[in-house]
Structure formats: structure tokens, C-alpha cells
Design a protein around this nucleic acid. Structure first.
Length: 873
RNA sequence: GGGGACGUAGCUCAGUUGGGAGAGCACCUGGUUUGCAACCAGGGGGUCGUCGGUUCAAGUCCGAUCGUCUCCA
């Protein structure tokens, strides 16, 4: 049975038993707490915890997953891959273990036709219920039912849902390992299906703190593992689909699978990473130096490195993408559609890496030749190559081995550990975890603020709590800082990039000027400000007034951000994702994933499309709905935002639909003109644009027009001919400068002639001195060269005063330098009179100082120093 | 979020006690040639990423900033 058939069989089996077929979700989870979709249940997490009501009681899916926690051991085992598909069946508060277990058994033995004698089972050591179902209902042999502790307790490693589980194993036969079932050997007894009985909540791993409101089923069967077992092959990599991808690796490198353990590992890595990188890029991840982009980068680079190790020097990623698309395109049409884009992104990363490999090899050569006689490359050197230039340690080791050298791997690992520690320490000190904990302690029981600010910017509420200098208090007086918590508030708390509102809170006894509003706990708005008159008390009624002008500017910018996001995707492609944003009253900033700088022309195109939508004055609708319906509407999630049970969706016309909790204008026309003012980079593959809207945009344009008018006036250009005028002025300036240079040169020649003709003769040598003001250091030097060229054997010493600074220059002809005369000594003598210092070069020395009055004295000093030097010869 | 490296001519790069901005390729002009990176002579082309500081003097030292690369979280 081939892989595609195994997948469809699974889905058909559960679909025919009233399970809704749910398509695979993106590898980028909606849940911002997760980096990647690591398990089949990730898209269903909110249903399992009953945070949200599931739209169906039962579901079945084949979910693509990425796990890279063990990236370094990938390829070394037969059972792990970074990219895999998880076949899953789910029950949300519907049936429980009594049905899940028999269903699993039925599918395995009757539909897939597996030999019941080769199936083994584990249950949690306390789970007598599951054990009884296996033994009494299904009727499996007690010899093949084993009990384990933590291995049969499923949890995600973080706070969240958890529960005991029952796993099903397949005995691959004695050639794979010893007898005794999965508790003895998981290489022979390979896990194919995990049935999780979701019923607890944990606050930390294995620490149950309560029951879930309902009991659910979450099962996961690794598609590739199932293929391995059903096709009776030795590893995941030899299953039909993966083997075909590996074959391309073989063809490209000329290495056959099975030649050696080492090359087999490299081929497996090529096949594994081919799949992972194809799907990651298809879901919009681009290589970068952080987060999931960094995972993708490591996958691409590791694949290229192993291809390199196998002896191919030419780019390989494009052919890896192609074969993956061929093998898996039928089940995942999106990768067919995006094939060109995927190839392009992968190749770009590969090309960059090949470049770093090349320069890294050169640097390693230099490092090796600097070793002298030593035979060990120091760990620090290897680490520098890795850390600064991205040259992999494995390649350093390989090259070292080729040349009969060692690498101090321990030293390298130590440097690596140090870097990790540094990064962790920095993360700890910067994370705001402490602040949240503090708020939870102080006002944890507070009811969430009822936000009224979508419709109104004024309202009323009750003062629930007052926080002053981190302490709860019942009264805050004039002049004191305070954080106010209200039962209801129209103040928007900073979220989704939109900054918090400012304004006033007024009670019977006093006024608070609010300068910022923050979401200090989920749903709880903290109004920060100063009591500007009177005092305020808890339990008072308060009137709330948001600064309306500011809010208006903010919402123009926020709506503008959405339109901009749409236009960027429209022009650049669907890989454009929001990576961060700032929506402030004075401007908006938008960071997005894209693999290259955006040129002016493209930027103008984006800006034009934004303004076309604004001018069309499309209606802006906001709806509150379930997350699921929102996704069906095609809403784009803003990464980094947190969404509750009910999500808010902002729709603009028929072009933009985004999850968003922010405040918006009612129709796009109110955004006013949107002007892009900058485009730049904030890291590899992440770009940033800034824009203005509304009157700020108009003011900006008006200012540009005024500037142009000024420039036109200065250039005396006719309106509309400013550019021509600027060209003409620049050309004339250039010509004029050239002529000035010629005149200066001619003048210097004349001056030089005069100076040379007035030179004294001392012994057989000439001594020329002169004061030439107003020509500056560079001119003085040029003059000195001219004089030197004509003077023959001799010394020249000249002084100049320019722009309130005195400078001297001294040259000594080569023959005199050879006889011990040093220009630096003579210039030094002059510099004393100027209150400065000077150069030491014996042929040509410049010196100077701020004391311009001393210039004549300096010339005298230099003249006598030069005469003495000549007399001593 | 933290660390490291780099930024000099259109391209690839050199430039150490701070003191005359360079090479190769490319380009232009003239000559000589006309079979695989042709040659000879001459020439144009640089705010040394940007801003500030130190200094008589900064490509060079210090600080900030922008950009590129890279490792770690």
C-alpha cells in the first residue's frame, strides 16, 4: 500500500464514521505561543481545552508537522524525520476510550489488514480502564499489553491539556532487536499510533492541577511510520514516497544508498530536509536569522552541506524541491502552485551559503597556515569561523582531517556553550514575565475591563482599583502617578501594534491625565497617568474621555496598515507576512517578510494601489466571530497577536480581511492620502516600511512641494524644469571646479618657480623657505611636491595660515635623507612655535598647530634647524 | 532579544606607529590586431556607508547611526 493510499484509507475510515474531514492547517500555527505546528492536535488545541466550542464533535485530518528539536540527530535513526504527516482522529467531548480503542483496532486489523499477532499495546500504569477495554472488549492477548509511567502520559511540555495515552506498536521481527515488547526495544517494536485520552489540565509538565471540562480523544498516527511498517522496509526513508526523493539525492551526488553508513546518513538528511524546506517555504517562511526563519535556514544549509560532503559542488535545492513537489503535490496542491517561488527562495539561500562556504574555506586556509608546526586547530579559531562567518564545524573538521590535522572540538563546544549562556541570560533579563506575575499577584482577581472604545470615545465606569508605585491603594492625590483600573473603558490598550490611548479620567473629586493604556493582564486595561487635580478614590464613578484627535490619527494609520499589508501581498506575493507593526498617531511602521529590498518603482506601485483603494472609499466592516469562521473568510492572522475565543475580523471592501482587535475608520476614504516615507531592512529577509496618513501625509507632501519650490527658486528654474536646472548647475559646477583646479595648478607652478629661484645654497644643497597663506594643508602639500621636483638636492620648509590654523611642511631630498637629514625633526622644530605636533617621516613631514601668530617664528626655527642640519654634513 | 564580522572606483578587493587614495577586471579615446579572458599608449570614474568626536592632520583612532553577513536564544 503506498503512502497516498494509506492516507486516504485513514481519512475515509473515520469519515464514514461521522468524522468531519478537516484539511491540514498551516505549519505556522495560529497560536502565537508555538513556533511551528508540531503535532496533529495543534490546530484543535482550543477545542480540546474547551476554550472554544468545536464546530464538529468528531474530526479526522492529515496534518503536516515539523519537529526540529532533534535536528542534530536527524538522519541517524530510522524512525525520525523533521517533516512528517500526522494522521489524526478526534473526539471533542463526544466518545472516549471505550470507542477510540476498538476503532483503532478495527482500522489496523480489518482495513489495513495488519497481523494482530504482531501488534503490541501500552497503557498508563494507572489506567485500568484502558487496559480493560483492550483485554475484555477488543480481546487482545495480555502478553502484549504493557504498562508504563511517563511514556504513557501525553503532555506538551507547557501548561495546557494533558492525559494518559495508549500506544500501539508493531513488531517488525527479530532481525530488528530483542524480544520483550516496546518496554524493551522501540527499534523493533515501532510505535505507529498514539491514542490520547485528554482529560486533565497541567500547569507544568506532569503536574496535573485539574480536570478539563470535557473528556476528548486525540489520536496521532505517523503516516510515514505506517508506510514503513506496511511496506515492510527498514526505515522511514525507504518508504515509496521518501525513497523517490532520496533517489534524486543519489542521482545528483553519484552515491548509492547502502554504500556506507556515513553517506546513507547524508542521503537521508537530503530527503528529509527536502520535504521540510519545501513545505516551510510553501507556508510562507523565509530564511532569516531568527525564529522559524532560522530553522528553515539551518535546514537548507544542512542539506547543502551534506550534498557538498557527498561530493557535489553544484546547487541541489531546486531539484530537491522539484522531486518533493512531484511526490507530494497530489496531496498538497499548494506546493505545486508555489513551486517556482519555493525553488527561488531555496536557491537564493543556497547560493548565499555556497558563497560563505567558499570564503570560509579561504579563511580556514589562512588559519591553517598560521598554525606553524602545530597540528591542532584551536577551538577558538573553529568557533570564530562558525560564529562570525557561518562556516560549519563539520566542514572545518573534514578539511582538517584531509590535511592530517585535528580540531580542538572541546574548545569549540566550550565557546558554543558560552554563547548559549550569554543569549539565555540576555533573554531572561529582557523578558517581561516578572511584570505579568506581579500584576497577577496584585490584581489577579480583577474582572476584565469592558472595552467600549470601538463605538465611543467617551463613557463611564467604576474605579475598581488604584495602583501607586506597585502597591494597591484607595486614594491617589494631586501630582502623584497612578495606574487606574476601571469596570469599563473606551481607552484602547496597546495591542497588535496599535499604541495605547491617552485622555482623561474624571471623578467627582479629581482628574487623571492618562498618558498611556496597557493590557497588563488578558482583558485588563491599566490606565497610566498623573492626578492633575484633586484626588481620586476607589469605588468612585468615573467619566472617561479619550483624546479624540489622537485616536482619529491612530485609526487612520491602523486602517492604512491593513491596506498597505494587502497591497504588499498583491504586488510582492503571498509570502509577505506581517512580522511586526507600530500604529502610532504620527506614523505607521510595518515589518514584513520578503527576501530582497523593494525598489522605488515597486514601492510606488504599492503606494499607488493603496491610494486607489482609499479613493474607492470602500466600507470597513468589523465582525466578531469564531476563529474557525474567520479562517473560512480567509482572514490573515497578524503574527504576535493573541486571540480569545471570539475573534474580531476587520474587512475592507472585498480585498482585505484580517484578524484585528484594533480601531478603524468606517470607510477607507477616511484614511486620507497614504504616503510611504521609507523602506529598509531590519534583518535578513525582513523589510520595514514607514508611512503617513491623513493630514500628516498631506503635510508631508506639501512640505515636499515647498522644498521643490525653494529649490526651483535657488536654481532660477522655470516651474517643472527643476531637474533640468539641477543637471545644468551640476555640470557647470563640475566644469568650474575643474578650471579652478587648473588655475590653482598654474598658480602653484608660478609660486614654485619663485620659491625655487629664491632658494639659498648651503654647501652643495639648496634650502627653500616660504610662507604661502590661504592654500590649506592639501594645497601646501601639492606645492611642496612641485618645489621638490625642481629643487634637486636640498630641503624645503614652508608655512601657511589658513582658516585660523597654521600648517608647515618640510621635505628633504632623497640623497640628503640618505645622509641623515630628517624632515620630521625640522618640522617638529617649527611645530613647537605653533603649539602643535607633527609627522615623523624623514622625506616629507607635515605639522601644524592652532597658534597662527607663531607662523613666522616657526619658519625661522625651521630655517635654522635646516641650516644646521646642512652645515653638519 | 544577545554576541561577532564587514562597508574604499561599475565589479572583486588591497591599503599599520594617523601624514601624497591604489590594483585587477569593466568603461572611454587613439593605435595595433582580428580564433576563444588579444595587445600597446593614454584617459575618465571616489563625500573611503552616514553623522559626530579626538587631532595641526582621520580611509586609518573613538562614539552613534544605517546597511550587509553570521552565530546563539
Amino acid at each position: 500500500m503506498d503512502t497516498n493510499e494509506i492516507r486516504s484509507t485513514f481519512i475515509d475510515f473515520f469519515a464514514s464514521r461521522d468524522h468531519t474531514v478537516v484539511p491540514s492547517a498551516s505549519l505556522i500555527p495560529l497560536d502565537p505561543a508555538l513556533l511551528l505546528t508540531v503535532a496533529g492536535m495543534v490546530p484543535f488545541k482550543a477545542y480540546l481545552t474547551a476554550e472554544e466550542k468545536a464546530p464538529y464533535a468528531r474530526a479526522v485530518s492529515s496534518q503536516k508537522c515539523i519537529r526540529t528539536t532533534d535536528i542534530d540527530i536527524l538522519g541517524t535513526t530510522a524512525r525520525h524525520m523533521s517533516f512528517f504527516e500526522m494522521l489524526g482522529s478526534f473526539s471533542f467531548g463526544d466518545y472516549f476510550k471505550e470507542k477510540a480503542i476498538p476503532l483503532a483496532y478495527e482500522l489496523l486489523t480489518e482495513v489495513y489488514g495488519m497481523d494482530p499477532e504482531r501488534l503490541w499495546y501500552t497503557v498508563h500504569e494507572t489506567d485500568d480502564e484502558a487496559a480493560a477495554i483492550w483485554l475484555d472488549v477488543v480481546g487482545v492477548s495480555p502478553d502484549r499489553l504493557q504498562r508504563r509511567d511517563r511514556d504513557n502520559f501525553w503532555q506538551m511540555g507547557v501548561a495546557g491539556p494533558a492525559g494518559p495515552c495508549s500506544e500501539i506498536f508493531f513488531d517488525r521481527g527479530p532481525q530488528y532487536g530483542p524480544d520483550g515488547g516496546p518496554i524493551v526495544d522501540e527499534e523493533r517494536f515501532v510505535e505507529i499510533w498514539n491514542l490520547v485520552f485528554m482529560q486533565y489540565i497541567q500547569d507544568e509538565p506532569y503536574h496535573v492541577v485539574g480536570d478539563l471540562p470535557m473528556k476528548s480523544i486525540d489520536t496521532g498516527m505517523g503516516l510515514e511510520r505506517m508506510a514503513m511498517v506496511l511496506q515492510d522496509v527498514g526505515s522511514l526513508f525507504e518508504t515509496d514516497s521518501v525513497r523517490a526523493i532520496m533517489a534524486v539525492g543519489e542521482a545528483r551526488t553519484g552515491v548509492r544508498y547502502g554504500e556506507s553508513d556515513r553517506s546513507d546518513m547524508s542521503l537521508r538528511i537530503l530527503a528529509d530536509h527536502a520535504r521540510a524546506l519545501t513545505f516551510l517555504i510553501a507556508d510562507g517562511v523565509v530564511p532569516s536569522n531568527e525564529g522559524r526563519g532560522y530553522i528553515l535556514r539551518r535546514l537548507v544549509r544542512r542539506a547543502v552541506r551534506h550534498a557538498h560532503t557527498l561530493g557535489t559542488q553544484t546547487p541541489i535545492t531546486a531539484s530537491l524541491v522539484d522531486v518533493t513537489v512531484t511526490e507530494m503535490g497530489e496531496a498538497f496542491p499548494a506546493i505545486v502552485e508555489k513551486q517556482d517561488f519555493i525553488r527561488q527562495v531555496a536557491e537564493r539561500e543556497e547560493t548565499g551559503f555556497l558563497k560563505t562556504l567558499e570564503s570560509g574555506e579561504q579563511m580556514l586556509d589562512v588559519a591553517i597556515s598560521a598554525l606553524g608546526g602545530a597540528t591542532t586547530i584551536p577551538g577558538a579559531t573553529a568557533f570564530k569561523l562558525h560564529d562570525t562567518f557561518g562556516f560549519p564545524i563539520e566542514l572545518t573538521e573534514e578539511i582538517a582531517t584531509e590535511r592530517g590535522l585535528d580540531v580542538d572540538r572541546e574548545g569549540f563546544d566550550a565557546e558554543m556553550a558560552e554563547q548559549r549562556e550569554r543569549a539565555r541570560a540576555a533573554f531572561r533579563s529582557s523578558s517581561g514575565g516578572d511584570a505579568v506575575a506581579a500584576y497577577r499577584r496584585i490584581i489577579g482577581g480583577l474582572t476584565p475591563t469592558s472595552f467600549t472604545g470601538y463605538g465611543e470615545i467617551e463613557g463611564g465606569g467604576v474605579v475598581l482599583s488604584l495602583l501607586r508605585e506597585g502597591e494597591l491603594t484607595e486614594r491617589v492625590d494631586e501630582g502623584q502617578e497612578v495606574e487606574v483600573f476601571l469596570s469599563a473603558s473606551p481607552f484602547y490598550a496597546e495591542a497588535g501594534g496599535q499604541v495605547g490611548d491617552t485622555g482623561r479620567i474624571v471623578t467627582e473629586t479629581g482628574v487623571v491625565n492618562v498618558s498611556d493604556t496597557q493590557l497588563v493582564l488578558p482583558g485588563v486595561h491599566g490606565h497610566r497617568g498623573v492626578v492633575t487635580s484633586g484626588h481620586i478614590l476607589t469605588t468612585q464613578d468615573a467619566r472617561t474621555v479619550v483624546d479624540g484627535t489622537r485616536r482619529e490619527r491612530i485609526r487612520k494609520n491602523h486602517s492604512g496598515t491593513h491596506i498597505l499589508h494587502w497591497a504588499l501581498r498583491d504586488v510582492l506575493g503571498d509570502h509577505v507576512h506581517q512580522e511586526g507593526s507600530l500604529v502610532a498617531p504620527d506614523r505607521l511602521r510595518f515589518d514584513f517578510s520578503h527576501y530582497e529590498g523593494v525598489d522605488h518603482e515597486t514601492l510606488h506601485d504599492v503606494e499607488r494601489r493603496v491610494n486607489v483603494q482609499i479613493i474607492a472609499n470602500k466600507a470597513v466592516h468589523t465582525v466578531e466571530t469564531s476563529k474557525d469562521d474567520a479562517e473560512k473568510m480567509g482572514a490573515i492572522a497578524f503574527f504576535g497577536d493573541k486571540y480569545g475565543d471570539e475573534v474580531r475580523v476587520v474587512q475592507m471592501g472585498d480585498f482585505s480581511t484580517e484578524f484585528c482587535g484594533g480601531t478603524h475608520v468606517p470607510s477607507t476614504g477616511q484614511v486620507g492620502p497614504l504616503v510611504l516615507v521609507s523602506e529598509g531592512s531590519v534583518g535578513s529577509n525582513i523589510r520595514r516600511v514607514e508611512a503617513l496618513t491623513g493630514s500628516a501625509a498631506y503635510d508631508h507632501l506639501a512640505q515636499l512641494r515647498a522644498n521643490l519650490a525653494d529649490i526651483g527658486g535657488i536654481l532660477r528654474a522655470q516651474p517643472g524644469r527643476e531637474v533640468d536646472a539641477a543637471h545644468s548647475v551640476a555640470d557647470r559646477l563640475r566644469a568650474a571646479e575643474q578650471r579652478i583646479g587648473e588655475f590653482e595648478e598654474r598658480e602653484r607652478t608660478q609660486t614654485a618657480d619663485g620659491v625655487v629661484s629664491r632658494a639659498e645654497k648651503i654647501g652643495g644643497a639648496a634650502l627653500a623657505t616660504a610662507r604661502i597663506d590661504g592654500i590649506g594643508g592639501d594645497g601646501l602639500r601639492a606645492l611642496a611636491f612641485q618645489i621638490r621636483d625642481r629643487l634637486g638636492s636640498g630641503i624645503g620648509a614652508f608655512g601657511s595660515v589658513t582658516d585660523g590654523k597654521a600648517a608647515v611642511i618640510v621635505f628633504v631630498s632623497d640623497d640628503l635623507v640618505a645622509r641623515g637629514v630628517a624632515a620630521g625633526d625640522i618640522a617638529g622644530a617649527g611645530a613647537k612655535a605653533l603649539g602643535g605636533g607633527g609627522g615623523r617621516d624623514p622625506r616629507l613631514a607635515q605639522a601644524g598647530g592652532p597658534n597662527t601668530d607663531g607662523i613666522d617664528e616657526a619658519l625661522l626655527l625651521m630655517r635654522s634647524a635646516a641650516s644646521e642640519a646642512l652645515a653638519e654634513l
